[in-house]
């Protein structure tokens, strides 16, 4: 029903296709890649695209096509896990703040305000500087950065839902807060959450690339899109094609998530129900 409406939406369809291809490429990376993404070939350093190296090679002679293919794994992995982390964190804190109100609400939301007052990338860099750059710390950093967005959305949904009479009815039956939150409140705020999560996936892809570009992402030589772009930057003048391919990959992924997010917002709009 919901999926059907999403696929009928043209923008949504394009988004689903782009993201679907992206995921398929990530899953099938060993089949699609022509070279090992980490093998250094000093005989073919920074060569332009050719029949042997479809996207050319980087300064160490690694095949950029294979690196971009494998890069989709790392980039999607980081962005999916960090958004999952942000969602779980945001739902927990936002639901507690909205449902219990008062002091709990104030303490939680002021912390969220503090987190939000930093520019996202700056905060992620600060967290990474504290934790040290590795794959999982990148996920944690991005997750923490996006927690407040989810917390705010969940809190506002919970605030309106907890006044509903079905919540009162459940309380009148003697049910406790935890049961009410999980049974009656959270299931009714999934729509805004899904929209926010999809949009955040796009941000997370970009943020991961930015961190990689700054040398703070997944540690080299791991082929994340940000790393590939960062390596290619030094050869912008001699071999501009090197930067184009990872750039296109990032753009496509972000575009796909954004289109999907827009379509989901239309499809899940509660006013249409």
């Amino acid at each position: 029903m919901f999926l059907k409406r999403l696929l009928k939406n043209k923008i949504g369809l394009i988004g689903v296709i782009v993201i679907g291809l992206n995921i398929a490429v990530a899953l099938a990376a060993p089949l699609l890649a022509t070279h090992d993404p980490l093998t250094i070939n000093l005989e073919a350093q920074a060569v332009p695209p050719s029949a042997q190296h479809w996207f050319g090679t980087d300064e160490y002679g690694r095949d950029i096509y294979s690196r971009v293919i494998y890069g989709s794994r790392i980039s999607l992995y980081i962005c999916l896990l960090s958004v999952v982390l942000a969602t779980v964190g945001g739902v927990a804190t936002g639901a507690a703040a909205g449902y219990f109100g008062g002091l709990v609400d104030n303490v939680i939301m002021r912390c969220m305000d503090a987190l939000m007052s930093f520019p996202a990338i700056l905060l992620a860099i600060a967290i990474l500087a504290a934790l040290g750059p590795n794959l999982y710390n990148v996920i944690i950093a991005l997750g923490v950065v996006y927690v407040p967005r989810f917390a705010r959305i969940v809190r506002s949904s919970v605030l309106s839902l907890k006044e509903k009479e079905f919540v009162e009815a459940s309380r009148a039956m003697g049910n406790g807060n935890i049961y009410i939150i999980f049974r009656h409140i959270l299931p009714n705020c999934t729509a805004p959450l899904i929209v926010q999560a999809t949009a955040s996936l796009a941000y997370a892809i970009l943020a991961e690339s930015s961190l990689g570009f700054l040398g703070l992402g997944a540690p080299p030589p791991a082929p994340s899109w940000g790393n590939i772009l960062s390596d290619a930057r030094n050869f912008m003048m001699e071999n501009p094609m090197m930067t184009v391919f990872p750039g296109v990959a990032i753009t496509l992924a972000v575009l796909g998530f954004n289109l999907l997010g827009d379509a989901l917002r239309d499809v899940l709009d509660p006013r249409l129900k």
């Binding site: 009162e168 039956m173 009656h184």
Partner: peptide
């Protein structure tokens, strides 16, 4: 326990039932 003995019927049959 006592809540089982005292129940409430609401005014608005739209907001008093969980749509999910």
């Amino acid at each position: 326990k006592l809540r089982r003995e005292m129940q409430i019927i609401f005014q608005d049959p739209w907001s008093s039932l969980n749509p999910r």
